[in-house]
Design a protein around this nucleic acid. Structure first.
Lengths: 183, 183
DNA sequence: CCCCCCATGTAACATGTTACATGATTGA
DNA sequence: TCAATCATGTAACATGTTACATGGGGGG
């Protein structure tokens, strides 16, 4: 069966609000979601694939304008696919290699699941982040004396990044928890 | 003319010390350089390309073992190519989209340039990082009220990461500066 | 009327992924 | 001798990059 790329999921998530292919391109071009390419050679083929898999469909919007713009939106199946993807639990290798994907799932998760699930997700992310930090520190302690200075500084940079993520996860847990109680 | 990928430069840098293709694969598989794929389907074709471009070459090492292992090493041209790449200055778009490449250049730079140049490089990196932080904060301030809570948290994560990089750059500048004076 | 932005596409190309395949060494 | 690791490769495939191309609409 067909396996979506991260770009595919990013597009699905954006289509929680119907838009044109060009609209998607502009999001990638002008917002902090810019890590995904906005080139027509990546977006339009990706949309065709999603449409072929019946995850998205086009419809004509007569509400807003007389001319009737063609917008893409999620199908029921597409919404389900996106939801399942968001609900997957984040393991160590996700944290090590695909933090961007974890963040994307976190963003779209908001529209599907109760706060309890989100907190559980974030706690598991933080646990794996902390395991990863220990691994990196282990590597650092073992080899720092023999490593060239730039290599050791580069490793410190990696540790600094992932530590920032650990703090963020904690912050996110607290923010969302407080958000419940202020309802 | 031929344009190397980041993987290509990563391999060139590793070949500052001669090794086999398998050796390179093991580095990517077992060390914090693991962001590059270690699959044979990526490494061996990449080596062939570098060899075709006369940036690396194989030789038989009789020093270490009688059997004589075939190792790759940099050619003069390859060393020059690597050096030029390391010396390129890092602009804003590098900092926004290719921080991993900047770190790679920083690591290999150690073997080519005087400390003064390294400091200059790091200062320019930090300046661009700080510009980028301002951009992200601008985006955040403008839209945080209208943004869904998860999106706003995700943006905070991005800001946290890049802030960690700014602190790291400052730390690296100081470490390297102190290193001069302790000679 | 002309330029800019909206809007969508395609073709050639290089790269990387996954899976398969082979043979040599080496330590238990 | 048998399994694990060293060591190198290839083929099919999907994706993304770069560059080119087209046409409509709106504002100055």
């Amino acid at each position: 069966m067909y396996k979506l790329t991260t770009l595919g999921y990013a597009i699905l998530g954006l289509l929680l609000q119907p838009m044109t292919g060009y609209g998607i391109r502009k999001v990638f071009e002008l917002t902090p979601m810019g890590e995904y390419s906005s080139s027509p050679g990546s977006i339009y083929p990706a949309l065709k694939r999603l449409e072929k898999e019946l995850l998205i469909e086009q419809y004509i919007d007569f509400e807003k304008s007389v001319s009737g713009k063609k917008l893409y939106k999620l199908t029921t199946s597409g919404r389900k696919e996106l939801k399942n993807w968001c609900l997957k639990e984040a393991d160590l290798s996700d944290v090590q290699n695909r933090m961007n994907e974890i963040m994307l799932r976190f963003v779209f998760m908001e529209f599907f699941v109760e706060t309890g699930i989100v907190i559980k997700f974030l706690k598991s992310v933080k646990e794996n982040i902390d395991i990863y930090i220990e691994q990196l520190i282990g590597y650092y302690e073992k080899d720092k004396l023999s490593m060239p200075i730039h290599a050791s500084l580069a490793l410190e940079q990696g540790i600094g990044m992932i530590r920032a993520n650990s703090r963020w996860a904690q912050h996110a847990i607290e923010t969302i928890t407080n958000n419940i109680h202020s309802d």
